[in-house]
């Protein structure tokens, strides 16, 4: 299995693109993609100064593994490397909240795989965002009820 998953407690360690690149690097793959989610400065017409991420770590890791494992059957992508890390804790604007790095033999399946993973994480991984605003207020985002496959 070429899968790496981790929840990064940002108080204790960094999230690093280089590690993702190294993990998926292989001459058997002709296409690799690195998706980074970063903290944006506006949401719903509010000026955002940062986001605190919360996570149910064990369930998040479980969801990442389930998403990886079902790709064989659902997307028919057998040959792949996948690296997923998500941060918990406070992030400033522009900082990375998630890295999804994938490598496949061909580009078409790499694009499909990368998009599939982030969309499924949004639906199934218990991660929450609390936005902090310029007026020093903060707010948990509403989100959607968790979906279980």
């Amino acid at each position: 299995m070429m899968l790496h998953t981790k929840v990064i407690d940002i108080k204790k360690e960094k999230i690093e693109v280089k590690k993702a690149e190294n993990f998926i690097s292989s001459s058997k793959f002709g296409a690799s993609l690195i998706f980074k989610g970063t903290v944006r400065n506006t949401n719903d017409n509010k000026k955002v100064t940062g986001i605190t991420y919360d996570s149910h770590d064990a369930m998040v890791i479980k969801s990442f593994e389930e998403i990886y494992n079902e790709v064989d059957q659902k997307l028919k992508i057998k040959d792949k490397a996948v690296y997923i890390e998500h941060v918990k804790g406070y992030l400033n604007l522009g900082e990375i909240s998630i890295i999804i790095a994938v490598a496949c033999p061909h580009r078409a399946e790499a694009y499909i795989l990368s998009k599939y993973i982030i969309e499924e994480i949004k639906k199934r991984s218990p991660i929450w965002k609390k936005e902090h605003y310029e007026n020093e207020k903060s707010e948990w985002l509403k989100g959607n009820p968790i979906q279980v496959n």
């Binding site: 998500h86 509403k142 968790i146």
Partner: peptide, 26 residues
């Protein structure tokens, strides 16, 4: 044991239960 449980699930002994509000990471 990190499984989502239904509303019919019975708690019968001392245990931890996690509350999972609507999610939205990434």
């Amino acid at each position: 044991d990190n499984n989502i449980i239904s509303e019919n699930y019975n708690i019968t002994k001392d245990q931890k239960i996690g509350i999972i509000p609507p999610i939205g990471g990434g």
